[in-house]
Amino acid sequence: MNAQAMNHPIVATGLTLHLGGTQALRGIDWSVPPGTATGLIGPNGSGKSTLMHTVMGLLVPTAGQCLTLGQEAQLLDDDHKARLGFVDQNFRLLDWLSVEQQIRFIAMMHPRWDSTVEARLLDAFDLERVLQKAVGSLPQGERQRLAVLVALCHRPDLALLDEPVSAQDPIFRSVVLEEIGRRVIEDGTTLVLSSHVLRDIESCVDRITMVDGGQVTANEDLDTLKEEHQRWTIVGATAELSVNEPYVRSVERHPGALTLVVRAGEAERRALEKKHGVIVEVRPVGIEGLFPLLLAPPAGSDASKEVVA
């Protein structure tokens, strides 16, 4: 661990977890800088939820360790737990309580509970009119918003939200994300939110952690990723033209054109244009274009990055 990572709210080293005969986490090294919102993405079943539960101390690693707010996750004391916020994928709540009782029950456990934030979220999430209803009777969307509300009103230092907008329609999705993002902007909360659809959460994250096959295959600043990658199109490229510079991340061959996604800039482009006597058109790479680059390369696939489109 470097000195800089010491103050990171999450620092995992060699995190390994065997779960029901499978290796759910395979030696994860991961650290999350303070005050950032990280999108935890990856295919279904890749280990996102397991990783979150381990960070919360709800699962105990087989090997390695996770420091959560500087304390070993499975040994978190009450003071540290009070600084965490968590929304489970199934947004577990107490079904037999009324919405208001549920909120008061959780508020009671948190000395830092902020009634201004509570009032704000009740209004934004349209939950005021269901305060007297039983939690168990709520539709999934309202139930999920309630789970987000009770995870944020104590203004946690670190909030882990597992698929926090999966049950929301597009309108509430942006409302919920805006309120989640507000905690980062107002309080400097460190946020980790997972989704298997990056586009759903893109509006409020500034970092991306990709989990694939129980491993963290990328953990980067989103702006940096966008800045360093470009889509290059070489119009009029002949079938013989092949570009295998080390910065090429993927190749698509269209009739009469070659499209490359590269981690390169101006200097490399000029050199390539000179070398092959071609003109390269530069475009930014959208988030969907970046996604595949962050996945673990399939075993033994070093040979070819090329696909024929």
Partner: peptide, 10 residues
């Protein structure tokens, strides 16, 4: 535009 390929700070 958060969906743009251009970095937000840029």
């Amino acid at each position: 535009d958060r969906h743009s390929g251009l970095p937000v700070y840029r």
